[in-house]
C-alpha cells in the first residue's frame, strides 16, 4: 500500500528505500511465520536426540565390543555378547524374576484399582478427602517405600512375621524364598501405585455418560451388571493406557529389589534379581560394559515387543465389542422404556 503512494512523490533514492523497506519487513514477517515453529520444536528434538536417542543407539554399538568399565573399548566381537548373554542362566533367571514380579504387581493392582475407582465413582461425601487418601502412598518415594517394607517383611523381627507368629502361623521367608520375595517386592509396587491408577480409571469412569447408567437401572440392571456391561467396556482405552505404562515401568524395576537386600544384588541366590539389577551388576560390579549393553538392548527389544502386543490386543478388543455397541443397545432400550412410561 505505502509503496504505491510513495513512489511518484519521493525522489529516486527515496524510492528504492521505500520499496525495499516494506518488503524487508514483509520478508521478515514471512520468515517469522515460517521458521518460528521449527525454532520452537527444535530444542526438544535436539536435546532428545543428544541425551535420549544417541545413548540408546550407542548402547547397541557398545554391545558389539568387548568393553571394560575401566580399560575401555576392546576387540570387536560382533554378536558374541548376544550369544553369551542368551546362554547365561542368570540372564534368564533375571527375566523370570522380572516377569513374575511384574505379573504379581500388574494384575492385582489393576483389579484393586478398578474396584477402588468404582467405589470413588459414587456420590460420596468428602470426595476430595477420599481421593487424597488413596493417593497418599504415591508421595512416598520408592526408596522410602523399599526401606519401610523391607523392615515390615523382615524375616526375624519384621512386623508381618510377628503378626503371623502371634496367630500361631509359621514365619514366611520373605527374602530367601523366591515366590515370597516376589510377593514382597510386588507389594511395595502395588502399595505405591494402586491409588494413582485408581484415580486415572476414576477419571475415565466419570466421562461415561450418566444416563447410560440410569437407563440400565430402569431396565433392572443391578450395580454389578452395570459395572461389567457399561463401565468396563467404556473405560477400556484407559485400561490399556494403564497396562502399557505399568508394563514399561514394571519391566525396568530396580529400586525395590536393589534395596530389599542392600548387600547382594537381588538376594543371596539371585532369587529376586531383576533384569535391570543384573544389568547394573554386570556393568558396575563385574565391570563388563559390553555384556551389560547387550542386556540393556535385549530388555529394550522385550519392552518394545510388549508394547506392540499390548497395542494389537487393545485394537482387537476395541473392534470386537467396543463401548459403542453397548451404547446403541442401551439407548434403544432407553427409548422403549421412555415410550412405555409416556404411555
Amino acid at each position: 500500500m505505502t509503496t504505491t503512494v510513495n513512489r511518484p512523490a519521493g525522489p529516486p533514492s527515496g524510492r528504492t528505500v521505500a520499496k525495499t523497506k516494506p518488503t524487508f519487513k514483509q520478508r521478515l514477517n514471512v520468515f517469522d511465520v515460517k521458521a518460528s515453529p521449527y525454532f520452537y520444536v527444535a530444542p526438544f528434538f535436539i536435546l532428545f536426540a543428544l541425551v535420549g536417542l544417541f545413548p540408546l543407539v550407542y548402547t547397541f554399538v557398545v554391545s558389539l565390543y568387548d568393553w571394560h568399565l575401566l580399560k575401555g573399548q576392546g576387540d570387536f566381537v560382533g554378536l558374541g555378547n548376544f550369544v553369551e548373554v542368551l546362554q547365561d542362566r542368570f540372564f534368564w533367571n533375571s527375566l523370570f524374576n522380572t516377569m513374575s514380579i511384574f505379573l504379581l504387581s500388574a494384575i492385582p493392582q489393576l483389579a484393586v484399582a478398578l474396584f477402588l475407582a468404582a467405589m470413588l465413582d459414587q456420590n460420596l461425601r468428602a470426595k476430595t478427602f477420599w481421593r487424597m487418601s488413596v493417593l497418599l502412598p504415591y508421595i512416598v518415594t520408592p526408596v522410602a517405600v523399599a526401606m519401610i517394607f523391607t523392615n515390615m517383611f523382615g524375616e526375624q523381627y519384621g512386623l508381618i512375621n510377628n503378626i503371623l507368629g502371634s496367630l500361631g502361623l509359621d514365619p514366611v521367608m520373605w527374602k530367601n524364598d523366591t515366590f515370597a520375595s516376589h510377593v514382597a517386592i510386588a507389594t511395595m509396587v502395588n502399595w505405591r501405585w494402586t491409588g494413582y491408577n485408581a484415580l486415572i480409571l476414576l477419571a475415565a469412569m466419570q466421562a461415561v455418560p450418566r444416563d447410560l447408567y440410569e437407563s440400565a437401572a430402569l431396565d433392572g440392571a443391578g450395580a454389578v451388571r452395570r459395572f461389567f456391561s457399561i463401565t468396563l467396556p467404556s473405560i477400556r482405552p484407559t485400561m490399556v493406557f494403564v497396562v502399557i505404562t505399568a508394563t514399561i515401568g514394571g519391566l525396568q524395576i530396580f529400586t525395590e529389589p536393589r534395596l530389599f537386600d542392600p548387600v547382594a544384588a537381588g538376594g543371596t541366590q539371585r532369587q529376586f534379581q531383576t533384569t535391570v539389577l543384573y544389568l547394573w551388576e554386570m556393568a558396575f560390579q563385574r565391570q563388563n560394559f559390553g555384556k551389560a549393553s547387550t542386556i540393556a538392548w535385549l530388555l529394550f527389544l522385550i519392552i518394545v515387543l510388549f508394547g506392540v502386543i499390548n497395542y494389537l490386543i487393545s485394537r482387537k478388543i476395541a473392534t470386537a465389542d467396543g463401548p459403542r455397541g453397548a451404547k446403541v443397545r442401551l439407548s434403544r432400550a432407553d427409548r422403549k422404556r421412555i415410550e412405555r412410561t409416556n404411555r
Partner: peptide, 24 residues
Amino acid sequence: GLMLMVIATMAIPTQLGIIPLFMV
C-alpha cells in the same frame, strides 16, 4: 510427522541408555 515421532518416543525406555550416558 514430527508429532508422531514425539508419540513414538514416549514409549521408548530411554533409561536403558545409561551405559553410554555414563561413559559420556
